[in-house]
Design a protein around this nucleic acid. Structure first.
Lengths: 156, 156
DNA sequence: GATGTCGTCATCCTTTCGGGTGATTTTGCG
DNA sequence: CGCAAAATCACCCGAAAGGATGACGACATC
């Protein structure tokens, strides 16, 4: 969490410096202060939203839930079932919550980049999780990982 | 979510107006632009963080209520549903039998090369079928194609 | 015979994935 | 606090996948 403050300070400082530097170029224009205000407002609002999302991201510990899944669907409504994940399999395979999260996003057809954006992490991190999850699942490709995950009941 | 945008606009507008109004009081001071920048930055960063919190909190609460539920269902066999393919969708999308065949193999986690071996055709042919099928499904990746195919009921 | 669809195969090029390795930071827990 | 697990990030490299385009033959249909 220390890094967030650092980033905040850096961005702020850079922006202030930029303002100070560019002041002599645009201050002769009309309404430059308002433009500055709007610019800074937009930038920092975006940054704040990002930061807010980032620091409040769900960090819940795994709960102990013993669950068996219910199938028996007439193949017409593919959704709507709550999907009780098979935590048993997940645990025995050593798949972490984060890895499962990424597996689920893979199953939904997202690319690594999209997953990275969705989870506010770098693409490299996603790839690392992927590699670990694939290894634990014995899969060589993401499609295979999805297939295995569904077989084992750890994916909807 | 619409209300957030409204609040955002209101706060922004008010701040801009305030800036414009107070310009004539502080513009004579030194570094007024930097002060404006810092002020606006802090305010909007705080606002952004608040917005981020607000947005994510609701999701978390929903998640909370859903999570700790203990389901118990007779451990039945997966029911062996024969999967009646939705030929309707397939036809309207213009997906040929061969393309569907390759889609099914993709869903099973095979690579293009493995599919080519399985079907006794060249890898290029498989890729062509893939491209066509992906285009008809509106998918950019094979995982997405599988997801779409299952949604539409043309894949088990 | 002209037309259209389907399956087949190719080439070129770009992007994405996956494997491997190493590193730092965060977090949970005793 | 200190340790271990988990999460994060980076870099490299080769393989796989994907896009675009063109081509050819079989087959059906009008």
């Amino acid at each position: 969490m220390k890094r967030h403050a650092l980033i905040f300070g850096l961005v702020g400082g850079t922006l202030i410096a930029t303002l100070q530097y560019t002041e002599y170029r645009f201050v002769v224009l009309e309404h430059s202060v308002e433009l500055y205000g709007a610019l800074v407002a937009v930038l920092f609002a975006a940054f704040g939203i990002w930061l807010g999302l980032r620091i409040t991201r769900r960090r819940e510990t795994i709960r102990e839930t013993v669950v068996l899944k219910e199938v028996l669907v007439p193949a017409e409504t593919p959704a709507l079932e709550p999907f009780a994940p098979n935590t048993e399999q997940q645990r025995t395979l050593g798949i972490t919550a984060r890895e499962l999260e990424i597996l689920a996003l893979i199953a939904r057809g997202l690319s690594n980049r999209e997953i990275a954006t969705e989870l506010f992490v770098s693409e490299n991190t996603v790839k690392t999780h992927c590699a670990r999850a694939f290894d634990k699942l014995g899969a060589a490709r993401r499609t295979q990982a999805v297939q295995r995950g569904k077989e084992l009941g750890i994916l909807p």
